[in-house]
């Protein structure tokens, strides 16, 4: 009985996602053209005259969305801190030898 409920819930979610994708297509009827392109056009036109950068992906990563890159670097730093904290076994052995 639980499996039947799960199957029905999955089918409903699947139908809504298919409906969303079908609603997302452009006015010409093609699947390839996105609809809301205001930010894309702004970045493509503004990154060369304002930032003097040819690679638009790098201009977005390090200038428009620089705070995201800062968060990514912080995540990497905390990962290194976690690894150094978990795997510090041989240092404890050295300290015990000194006592």
């Amino acid at each position: 009985m639980r499996k039947i409920f799960a199957l029905i819930a999955l089918l409903v979610i699947f139908a809504f996602m298919i409906l969303a994708v079908v609603e997302m297509r452009g006015e010409d009827g093609g699947f390839g053209e996105p609809v809301n392109t205001d930010m894309d056009d702004y970045f493509l036109e503004d990154s060369q005259p304002h930032n003097q950068v040819n690679n638009v992906v790098t201009a977005i990563l390090f200038d428009y969305r620089g705070l995201d890159t800062l968060g990514e670097a912080t995540v990497l730093f905390s990962a290194v801190s976690g690894v150094l904290t978990v795997l510090r076994k041989y240092q404890i052995k050295k300290l015990e030898v000194k006592k």
């Binding site: 930032n51 003097q52 950068v53 040819n54 790098t58 201009a59 390090f62 200038d63 620089g66 890159t69």
Partner: peptide, 10 residues
Amino acid sequence: NTGGTVPLMN
């Protein structure tokens, strides 16, 4: 030699 702070941050 372009890009401002973007190459430095890279």
